[in-house]
């Protein structure tokens, strides 16, 4: 009984991790169709913000994580949208290569400043015991954060004027522009919001993982796989795909090794994309967000 309980929690945390990783990308890639290969590096920046704020400036962990990290990474995203991305809208492969150059550049900058060493954030809140097993309380907090973040995204996109403008501009920039919206500005803000979400995800995951300049690589592939498999309705799709992949990965990891868990995640993705080339929501739930 305890074993099943702990496994359920681990599966949930696996799903939440993937969903968190995918949230920012669902905005930038899912909605805007901008391939952001610097996604992992935005997450890495989020992690470093937490480390610098807590260790250098002694700022409270939660403030650093939930407020400073998203603002900082959002600003970084804003800057690079202005000097790099905005020239490349509509040129998918060029965007892919340019953002990948950006990712190398960011790794270079962070390595330059902090050195190529592994840093860690102490996991707050300690552990609780679940029958014979013990689990970090923070895992539950992370799951809760993920749920809140996704609820907020859905509410903003479906229930506010801001969300309506964003969705409308992504669907048809010309029409939106006729209605008095400035598409370049909407793109700029949306990209910054996506970057901020990514930084937030990186910050939230920092206490569970180590932080190293090259950590982004291990995030970016999973995030892309999740969002792509999700398909047209970016957020619903990302949640569904996270559900599938998180379950597969945790179960395989539990039975065999975490490495095989990763490998099976990818195999599942390749097979799923063979069956649904347009992603899960390309076939089901087409009308959701």
């Amino acid at each position: 009984m305890d074993l099943i309980g702990i496994q359920i929690i681990q599966v949930l945390s696996g799903i939440a991790t993937l969903a968190l990783m995918g949230a920012g990308l669902a905005v930038i890639f899912g909605m805007m169709r901008v391939i952001n290969f610097a996604h992992g590096e935005f997450m890495m920046l989020g992690g470093y913000v937490v480390i610098v704020c807590t260790e250098q400036f002694g700022i409270n962990l939660w403030i650093a994580m939930l407020i400073i990290a998203p603002i900082f990474v959002g600003l970084v995203g804003l800057v690079f949208e202005r000097i790099l991305i905005r020239f490349l809208y509509g040129r998918m492969i060029d965007t892919l290569i340019a953002t990948w150059g950006l990712s190398l550049f960011l790794i270079g900058v962070v390595t330059w400043i902090f050195g190529n060493v592994t840093r860690g954030v102490q996991t707050p809140l300690g552990a609780y015991s679940f029958g014979d097993y013990s689990e970090k309380v923070y895992t539950l907090v992370m799951i809760a954060f993920t749920v809140v973040i996704y609820l907020a995204i859905f509410i903003v996109l479906r229930r506010t004027k801001l969300g309506l403008i964003a969705r409308g501009t992504m669907q048809n920039p010309n029409q939106a522009s006729c209605l008095g919206v400035s598409p370049p500005r909407v793109y700029m803000v949306t990209f910054a919001v996506g970057a901020a979400l990514t930084g937030l995800a990186g910050a939230i995951l920092a206490p569970l993982n180590t932080v190293i300049p090259t950590i982004g690589v291990s995030y970016v592939a999973q995030a892309f796989i999740t969002v792509i498999t999700g398909g047209a309705a970016a957020f619903t799709g990302t949640v569904l795909a996270s559900g599938v992949f998180g379950t597969v990965r945790q179960v395989i990891s539990f039975e065999w090794t975490p490495i095989l868990g990763q490998v099976f995640l990818l195999i599942t993705a390749v097979i799923l994309l063979r069956i649904f080339p347009t992603g899960i929501t390309g076939r089901f739930f087409r009308r959701s967000t």
Binding site: I97, G108, T111
Partner: peptide
């Protein structure tokens, strides 16, 4: 390879090269 001090690491330079070439 890697950080060689002075900030001239390969990642930084290659990243700049890629971005400049694409643009």
């Amino acid at each position: 390879t890697g950080a060689s001090g002075g900030g001239l690491n390969t990642y930084l330079i290659f990243g700049l090269i890629v971005m400049i070439f694409v643009l």
